[in-house]
Design a protein around this nucleic acid. Structure first.
Length: 572
RNA sequence: GCGCCCGUAGCUCAGCGGAUAGAGCAGGGGACUUCUAAUCCCAAGGCCGCAGGUUCGAAUCCUGCCGGGCGCACCA
């Protein structure tokens, strides 16, 4: 149980007795004390008593003697809570012996599907894929660490009419030649060439159309060529994931095509349930609550008028399979905000069909666009989309250069490793540190300046701590007494207790900027401690105690950054 | 037209019913014979888009405007 919950538990009965019913004590961190409870204010009207009087009554009843050195009524009716040094030391000491740093594993593990990244076969990943990949990976890491069974689903765009022209282009080039081109990772050029031929050459166009039919019909040779395209693309995606430090593997690809066989059943089920209606030749579900431009109910087109299936069909099939066969109870879709309505409709339709019923639920974890420094959608100098690989390479190059100048003592290999951790970390952190609902301005100068609230700031704090231990050749004594005499020590101890509540909060809302904000605060608090409180030169037992605080800080930073998918180099 | 997201310091952002609205960056002033100065400390910087309303209390909730972005039937 974390500190805030403990205080809440102690205050709740007192509030209950004073109010004559259950009351949430509303405990939070305070500028005026360690914690504060705001509940008395809200209670004043209901009870017809002055809030300060209520707060005083609660203070007199609450069983806080073993936790707090001071409980004071303050201002209009706040209860200011100051932890006793003994209680604070004990709680921090408890963290030291806990590999999970105070964060409990979930009591009821669920099967959670996290749907994220989803690049398109034969297209390069661009910045548009960055947020889904980075945020989704953080979701998967966090829920897994919390104790859930996480299924990563990389909903690859591996199906559709463009594959006719892509396969024909592959045939034209020759398989060996095409494989060479594609293994270089220049998928966009391949796609553009196919597209150009398709636009210019009527004969090619016809072949492409026939090829689509052959692909859908399961023609073995066509399927083999298609598979080749998919394999080559997957190989490329995996190299990007590796560079990005993303946990997606080859086992997580769940291409759209893998749902093909289920689609007729999905349509048949919907029909049997009476949910399907024909509209202009298309088979549609009309989930309640969504209206279009004309004010009429908006259809979810499950089967197009030409008999083909749209992606709503695939999404419905996926939900059916995930809640059914996989037994998932939480479906997380990490997809851009523009698709919000689409998911509303799909979730509503799946609910009507009985494929998404309690306790199973789905949530769209949406995010805004990535903008350039000019505040507009990010474009390359040439005006095209910015390739993800190029972005990452530049971040790594800049960070490596910076590392070399900052710390010439590092060898070339280590500088390269640190540069990678810092460059990639900077990009991921810049994304995760902002409220994901907002558009995210990606400014090279700021992001890679590596100052302020950035990954390198946190990484640097970590490496400083590791440096202390390396220099002294010591290890922590987990039972060392926690020193609290210095304000900087006390502030750090208190901040360390904040990890569990913030993880719990992020697990609920998947708002990772809250975790980033916490880690930044922790690093800031540590840096202030580092300035004022010498560790190795301190007298015992303070020295061991400061080592303990430093080590705990390092562990929380490492664990927190790991949840965000960011590395922590031992040296910088 | 309808719906969604967003308007907070010069810039990038926290805060989303409670005490004097907080950080970072940029700009100003300080601190390295002392565990890495990728650091720290100090000062400065705000009609919280506008107008109403609810409330003991509103940046936060409600309504209406204004501004920016996105979406609204067979592309995913």
């Amino acid at each position: 149980m974390d500190c805030e919950m403990l205080l809440t538990d102690r205050l709740a009965p007192a509030f209950g007795a004073v109010a004559g019913g259950p009351v949430d004590p509303v405990v939070r961190r305070s500028q005026h004390a360690d914690f504060q409870s705001d509940a008395a204010l809200a209670l004043a009207r209901r009870l017809g008593r002055p809030p300060r009087e209520i707060a005083a009554a609660v203070r007199d009843r609450a069983d806080l003697a073993d936790l707090c050195s001071s409980v004071q009524v303050s201002g209009p009716g706040f209860l200011n809570l100051t932890l006793s040094d003994a209680a604070l030391a004990e709680m921090v000491g408890g963290l030291a012996g806990d590999p999970r740093l105070g964060v409990p594993a979930v009591a009821r593990p669920e099967t959670v599907v996290v749907d994220y990244s989803a690049p398109n076969v034969a297209k390069e990943m661009h910045v548009g894929h960055l947020r889904s990949t980075v945020i989704g990976d953080a979701v998967a890491r966090l829920l897994e660490w919390s104790g859930h069974r996480v299924v990563r689903a990389n909903h690859l765009g591996d199906w559709g009419t463009p594959f006719g022209m892509l396969i024909e282009h592959l045939v034209d080039l020759g398989e060996a030649e095409a494989a060479d081109d594609l293994s270089m990772g220049d998928l966009d050029a391949f796609y553009a060439a196919a597209r150009a031929k398709f636009d210019a050459d009527a004969g090619f166009r016809d072949r492409a159309r026939l090829r689509v039919v052959a692909l859908q019909g399961g023609d073995p040779d066509t399927r083999r060529l298609w598979r080749l395209l998919v394999d080559l693309s997957e190989h490329y995606f995996l190299t990007v994931y590796d560079l990005l430090d993303v946990t997606l593997t080859d086992r997580d690809f769940r291409g759209e095509s893998s749902y093909n066989d289920l689609l007729p059943e999905v349509v048949a089920d919907l029909d049997r349930l009476g949910l399907l209606r024909d509209s202009a030749g298309a088979a549609c579900v009309f989930p309640p609550g969504s209206v279009g431009r004309d004010g009429e109910p908006l259809p979810l087109i499950v089967r197009k008028s030409d008999g083909g299936y749209g992606y709503p069909a695939t999404d419905l099939a996926a939900i059916r399979q995930r809640t059914g066969e996989l037994g998932a109870t939480r479906l997380v879709y990490v997809v851009g905000l523009p698709q919000r309505r689409h998911f509303e409709m799909v979730f509503a339709a799946a609910g009507q069909a009985g494929w998404l019923t309690a306790p199973a639920r789905a949530e769209h974890v949406g995010f805004g666009s990535i903008l350039g420094a000019d505040g507009r959608m990010l474009r390359s100098r040439a005006g095209g989309t910015v390739k993800l690989q190029a972005l990452l390479d530049e971040a790594v190059a800049r960070a490596t250069e910076l590392t070399r100048t900052r710390n010439p003592a590092l060898g070339a290999a280590e500088a390269a490793e640190v540069g990678r951790a810092v460059g990639i970390g900077a990009i991921k952190y810049a994304d995760l540190a902002n409220d994901r609902h907002r558009d995210h301005v990606l400014d090279w100068e700021r992001m890679l300046s590596l100052d302020g609230n950035t990954a390198p700031y946190l990484q640097y704090a970590y490496s400083r701590i590791r440096s202390i231990f390396r220099k002294a050749g010591v290890t922590v004594r987990p039972d060392a007494p926690v020193p609290l005499a210095e304000p900087a020590e006390r502030a750090l101890a208190l901040e360390l207790l904040g990890f569990a509540p913030v993880v719990a909060e992020v697990e609920r809302g998947l708002e990772f900027h809250q975790l980033a904000g916490y880690l930044f605060r922790l690093a800031t608090t540590f840096n202030a401690f580092y300035e004022r409180c010498p560790v190795l030169r301190a007298e015992q037992p303070v020295r061991d105690g400061r080592l303990l605080l430093a080590d705990l800080t390092a562990r929380v930073l490492r664990q927190g950054l790991e949840l965000l998918g960011i590395r922590t180099p031992e040296r910088m």
